[in-house]
Write a protein that binds this DNA or RNA. Structure first.
Lengths: 99, 99
DNA sequence: AATATATATCGGTTTTTTCCGATATACCTA
DNA sequence: TAGGTATATCGGAAAAAACCGATATATATT
């Protein structure tokens, strides 16, 4: 994934919000507390919070994943997304040098 | 200028290249060496290097400027653009915290 | 097997971005 | 003032992104 595509992934208000929410799932996705956040947050919870349709949010999560900013884990019928902190850190390091 | 718009400004290969070239004008814009780089690099030099049309490059520089990434200085018939290092630094600091 | 739930994918409409050529504006020089 | 050069702006065609609803797929449950 090249730099331009990473910036494109970040060029959308909703996607930036999702990334931000995923920094603190306990606070931002209270409904999921019962099942815990070990694997991240499932699509449905994120979708509800954005107010956009399921298909749109699914696509947005795919964009973030292709950019390497989040990772996905399928568990049963759910797909959980979480930030890929290592990748984000690496990206920041790179941007700090290159920009 | 909000975060999304800054990322949008960075979501284009040519604009990223321009930003990168402007880090080292002496190396990247040899033709302008005679007049020096005190005020930055003039549009024509940048345009030549991109291979795009004059109007496109002018618009791209305006996008970078609106994002606060470069500043412009008119001198005679020329407009010189240069990186706004302070703004870029501030942006990086913010991204490092918020992303 | 049948039904239900969660997510992904597909096809389409609308909006935005990319890039162009033509033209306008600003400045410089004779 | 007239003509030349540098840049900005305008109008538009083509490509990409932002969404959506409908449908497909995967898993779970009965």
């Amino acid at each position: 994934m090249d730099q331009v595509d990473i910036f494109k992934a970040l060029s959308n208000k909703t996607r930036l919000q999702i990334l931000s929410w995923l920094k603190d799932p306990e606070t931002n996705f209270v409904e999921q507390s019962a099942m815990g956040f070990e694997n991240g947050v499932c699509v449905g919870q994120i979708q509800k919070k954005t107010g956009l349709t399921q298909s749109t949010v699914s696509e947005y999560l795919a964009v973030l994943q292709r950019a390497g900013l989040v990772s996905a884990a399928r568990v049963g019928q759910w797909t959980y997304y979480r930030r890929d902190e290592a990748a984000i850190k690496a990206l920041l390091a790179r941007i700090n040098i290159e920009l």
